[in-house]
Simulated assay, not measured.
Amino acid sequence: MRTPPRSPSATEVLDAVRRHWLPGAETAVHLPVGFGAHHWRIEAAGGPALFATLDEPSPTRSAASFEAAYEAARALQDTGLAGVLAPRESVDGRVLTEVGIGLLSVTSWHSGRTPTEREARGGAHVARTLELLRALHGAPPPGALQRWAPRVGGDLARRVEAVTDGPWTSGPLGEEARGLLRAGLARIGQAERRYRELRAREEARSAHRVPTHGEPHWANQMLTDAGTLILVDWETLAAAPRERDLAALPEAVQRAEGADPGMLELFALEWTLSEVEEYLRWFRAPHTGTADDRIALRGLREELQR
């Protein structure tokens, strides 16, 4: 996120890191990177830096699901599986601790960069990504691995229709967001009906589930200074059809991998509908028009145009 959260403060994050991971931590600096979670760089005198992340539970993603995903990611990393950057265990053996409005985790710091979207669609990079995903999909499922569960609440179109019936005074972008959602009602309803059909089909073939990252797109990848490709943000790790990850790859690769078109459509629809639901909550809540708010409004518009 581009702007620091209302809670916790950098001081509270630093105190939590000292108590649970690194007693010698000296500074916590908020990083204006990513979207959806907050991040800090943690510095300690004479020691390696840490990367702290604050995840906020929601009605469709509980605290327990974050913890299970991170524990499973740590188990995969401990087996030596390539491309996994999992949270560190705290002094009390956990991967998360409650701080302010969210759940704090830390990983080791890696110097590197996020590939550009265009770069990530290049043949050589796609081949590297596919290699990591094949290894993940073939890995023995860790004991903590949770089953994929739909991230879209029931009757989304009905709820959108009900709450957009009158003005939104929650903030400067509320009315524009409400107008976009109101205009997109028919499209939301159509997507939701198709999503339900495909969910029922997936349930009938649930034996095909494997460990999946969930969102292995370019923004959740990192090219380290050493030239290694790693996947970050493992909070969506779950047992699901491999198409959940293949949906992030070009169509030619999906065909070559024998991906089921219906399952690819299921997870494309889940992404769009879950984003719409998240932005619905976002703009009904108080907001002030920050850079994050404007990014969210642009995201809502893009999802409704898909």
Rank of each mutant, 00 (worst) to 15 (best):
G179A: 06
W148L: 09
A177I: 00
W234M: 09
I42M: 07
A200R: 15
A157Q: 00
E303Y: 08
R301I: 01
H217G: 13
A68N: 06
R194D: 04
G46V: 06
V17K: 02
E302A: 15
P286E: 10
T288E: 14
E215D: 15
R205S: 13
L156R: 03
P48G: 13
E277M: 09
L132A: 05
R193F: 05
T79C: 09
R121S: 14
R2M: 09
D260L: 13
L132W: 01
P140H: 03
A291T: 07
S206I: 12
R182A: 15
H110Q: 14
D78H: 06
A68T: 02
L103Y: 02
T107R: 10
G100K: 01
A177K: 00
E12H: 12
G262A: 11
T114N: 03
A75Q: 12
P142S: 07
V210G: 03
H125P: 05
S90A: 15
A259Q: 09
M222T: 02
A16V: 08
F51A: 04
A44Q: 12
E117S: 12
L54G: 01
S65V: 10
R193G: 05
G34H: 05
T129A: 14
E257I: 03
P250K: 08
L269F: 05
T224M: 11
E12L: 12
P23M: 11
L223H: 07
V276C: 04
L156Q: 04
V13G: 02
G289C: 10
A252E: 15
S105C: 09
T116F: 08
L249M: 14
F35I: 03
L103C: 07
G166K: 14
Y70T: 00
A183F: 03
T27Y: 08
S90R: 11
A45Y: 08
P142A: 06
M1P: 02
T116K: 03
P216D: 05
E26Q: 13
G80L: 08
G153P: 03
I295V: 11
L81T: 00
R187F: 07
V210K: 04
A10D: 15
S9N: 10
H208F: 06
Q77E: 15
A135Q: 12
F51E: 00
V126E: 10
A149S: 14
G93C: 08
E270C: 06
R41P: 03
S274M: 07
L249F: 10
V13I: 12
D165R: 15
A252H: 14
I295R: 14
A162P: 08
E278G: 08
V17W: 06
T288S: 13
E243Y: 06
T97G: 04
A72E: 04
A291Q: 08
P32Q: 06
A120E: 01
A226T: 14
G289F: 08
G299L: 06
G93L: 09
A162E: 13
G122Y: 01
M1D: 01
L273C: 05
R147A: 14
